[in-house]
């Protein structure tokens, strides 16, 4: 059983973001980086699947700058067997289709049984790399997967998908297939000291690619702080009861929502 896990390096969740001079992205030169949250859960699912099968190989694949090597090292230390690093100068200048195409071109020949990705990245938040990749690889996909029935894997796999509003649904997929994993569905393991030592000997294949121009791409023109469109009326001047009287009157007569 061969499993590929796609993982991305993103700006740290709590980082203070500054906008770059050309206003087309953030200035990430001094922003601390981390592995995209849902990608961590994707790796965990892959490792557990391999363990349940008692055999197999977990290959982590990232597309990004040289600094994304920390994502790979961490994944190898947690138990991935080898890695493919698709090196690009600036992944944020690429649109989702370009990213999926570059990944497809470089993992197709692995002929993996399963491809796991996180649900979406916490930076660009397109949520479509995995789905487009599945179409390019001509394999079926499922998004927002919250459980993989590991016992079921045998030419097919049963997965539980999250629908909206508290609904769920199981699907049976033929393999090979691609699953995008929701955050928070398991307890992610830490890298052990032994794992960290072992990781140093694992294969990391660097692939330098020049990504072709994509004539149908979306282009970020400008990045900015969300506009504050609202003028807040503070009512009651510190007197909560007076504010409450005023509020209900305003909701009735001004906002007309009561």
């Amino acid at each position: 059983m061969k499993i590929i896990v796609l993982m991305k390096q993103v700006a740290n969740k709590d980082a203070v973001l500054r906008i770059r001079g050309d206003e087309r992205w953030i200035d990430d030169s001094d922003v601390s980086q981390q592995t995209n949250e849902s990608d961590g859960y994707a790796l965990e699912e892959a490792l557990r699947t391999k363990e349940a099968k008692g055999e197999g190989e977990v290959i982590v694949c990232t597309l990004g700058k040289p600094s994304a090597k920390t994502v790979i090292k961490d994944a190898l230390a947690r138990g991935a067997d080898r890695a493919i690093h698709i090196l690009v100068e600036d992944e944020n200048a690429l649109s989702p289709y370009q990213i999926s195409k570059a990944i497809a071109d470089n993992i197709r020949e692995e002929n993996a049984d399963l491809v796991f990705t996180g649900l979406q990245s916490d930076d660009a938040s397109h949520g479509q790399t995995g789905v487009i990749l599945a179409e390019l690889l001509d394999i079926p996909h499922a998004t927002i997967v919250i459980e993989v029935d590991r016992e079921s894997i045998n030419g097919s796999v049963r997965v539980k998908r999250e629908l909206e509003s508290g609904w769920y649904q199981w699907f049976e997929y033929k393999t090979p297939s691609l699953l995008t994993i929701q955050s928070g569905i398991s307890q992610i393991r830490y890298a052990s000291l032994k794992g960290i030592m072992a990781a140093k000997k694992k294969e990391v294949r660097d692939v330098e690619v020049s990504v072709e121009d994509f004539e149908s791409g979306q282009v970020v023109q400008k990045v900015y702080m969300p506009l504050k469109t609202k003028q807040t009326q503070i009512l009651g001047d510190g007197d909560a009861k007076a504010g409450a009287v005023e509020l209900i009157a305003k909701l009735k007569d001004e906002a007309r929502v009561l």
Partner: peptide, 10 residues
């Protein structure tokens, strides 16, 4: 945290 204005090529 941020908004992005996006155009589509092609």
């Amino acid at each position: 945290k941020l908004d992005a204005d996006v155009t589509i090529k092609g």
